[in-house]
Amino acid sequence: MSEARLITIKSSLARQIQEPGGRTVREAERRASQEIEVHRAPAMAAIGRALEELDALVTEASPDSGARVYALASQIIDVGGYFDLGPLHEAVYSLCEIADRMMGQETWHWPSVEVHLRAARLILAEDCRSSRASENMLNGLRAVAARITQPTEVAAG
């Protein structure tokens, strides 16, 4: 019986990794951050336009606008996902949650949507930085979202 031999084949990638030089992980991360940062201004402008569309929907307060509210809030999260939006992310995520909950109801509680929209605008105006004011707004939005969780309170309120 012959003895089994193990043959190791090195790929070109394995050889390249072992060669000195190249970029460190830290350098690659720094360069990637710089490249993404170039797109911050257009992304913030797109978020601003989505907030304007949401404002128009709140003004209209049509029962058919619910799905559009969710879609626009999701769009903000998608566009902003590459950047640190700080408290704006939480505010808009909360808007997505309440929109999702209200889509299953007969009537919408538009003031809840409006409160989320106003908070998002204020946070965006502060360049998405965490502050005492933004934390207070987020606490208020959490209370609104908790209220939306209970459909009987929404219908009565």
Rank of each mutant, 00 (worst) to 15 (best):
S2C: 10
S2K: 14
E3V: 12
R5W: 06
L6P: 05
K10G: 07
L13H: 15
L13E: 15
L13Y: 14
R15G: 07
Q16L: 15
Q18F: 08
G21K: 11
E29T: 08
R30Y: 09
R30K: 14
R31S: 12
A32D: 09
Q34C: 08
E35A: 14
A41S: 10
M44Q: 06
I47F: 01
A50S: 09
L51W: 01
E52H: 04
A56E: 12
V58Q: 05
A61L: 11
P63L: 14
P63C: 10
S65Q: 10
G66D: 10
G66Q: 10
G66K: 12
R68Q: 13
V69W: 09
Y70V: 15
Y70P: 00
A71V: 07
L72P: 02
I76Y: 00
I77A: 07
D78P: 00
G80M: 00
G81M: 00
Y82S: 15
F83Q: 03
G86H: 04
E90T: 11
A91W: 00
V92H: 00
S94I: 09
L95I: 04
E97Y: 02
R101F: 06
M102G: 07
M102Y: 07
T107A: 14
W108K: 13
H109F: 13
H109Y: 14
W110C: 04
P111Y: 03
P111F: 03
V113S: 07
E114M: 03
H116G: 13
H116L: 04
L117Y: 01
A119W: 00
A120M: 00
R121Q: 08
L122G: 09
L122S: 12
I123C: 05
I123E: 04
D127W: 03
C128I: 00
R129A: 11
R132L: 10
R132P: 01
R132K: 10
M137T: 06
G140I: 06
V144L: 07
A145I: 03
R147E: 13
I148L: 06
P151I: 07
P151N: 01
V154Q: 07
A155N: 08
A155G: 06
G157A: 15
